[in-house]
Design a protein around this nucleic acid. Sequence first.
DNA 1: GCTGTCAATCGGGACA
DNA 2: TGTCCCGATTGACAGC
Length: 204
Amino acid sequence: MALSPNSSSLDLTISIPSFSPSPSLGDHHGMRDFDINQTPKTEEDRMIGATQHVNEEDSNSGGRRRKKLRLTKEQSHLLEESFIQNHTLTPKQKKDLATFLKLSQRQVEVWFQNRRARSKLKHTEMECEYLKRWFGSLKEQNRRLQIEVEELRALKPSSTSALTMCPRCERVTDAADNDSNAVQEGAVLSSRSRMTISSSSSFC
DNA sequence: GCTGTCAATCGGGACA
DNA sequence: TGTCCCGATTGACAGC
């Protein structure tokens, strides 16, 4: 397969197996979309190709049996390349691509829709993985902090009961020592200290 | 036989 | 109102 820069004069060799249109399967109520299993009505619609084939039983069974179309490697590859460039197609791009690939515009449209869906699903799965790992690290961090808290409590049981910060000078005092006004100079507020901030009481 | 993949279908929302 | 797109689902098929 060779691609020239000018899309209108692409030099692409795609193997298109002989195409046999499906027999018309009658009126499908409420069906708005192009049905690949129906007889193509226009020249463009007749461009449906790829590996589509007709099962003779279909026309006899009476039921509408969908045939599985497999795009050729070349078709998939070119569609993929187009998708990398643009996740959505303009009507002209769609028409050109369909003509070039000898597919119907509807097939190209469907391929892009499904491709976008797969792309989104993949992205969501990656996001899920990321969030799982993040959750794991947060759990681990939480576990470490809890151990740290336990260690601090073990060091001085009375001081971890309640620390209070003076709203004016923002110094931290031990509630247990409040009566004696033992103010901790330059105490640093951190996650390691369990404290309550009182807005009404003044210590200074 | 089961399972995964993927083209096609369906119903519905958004928008010009 | 027609067209386009999306999400959910179906169904054919391939690989195991």
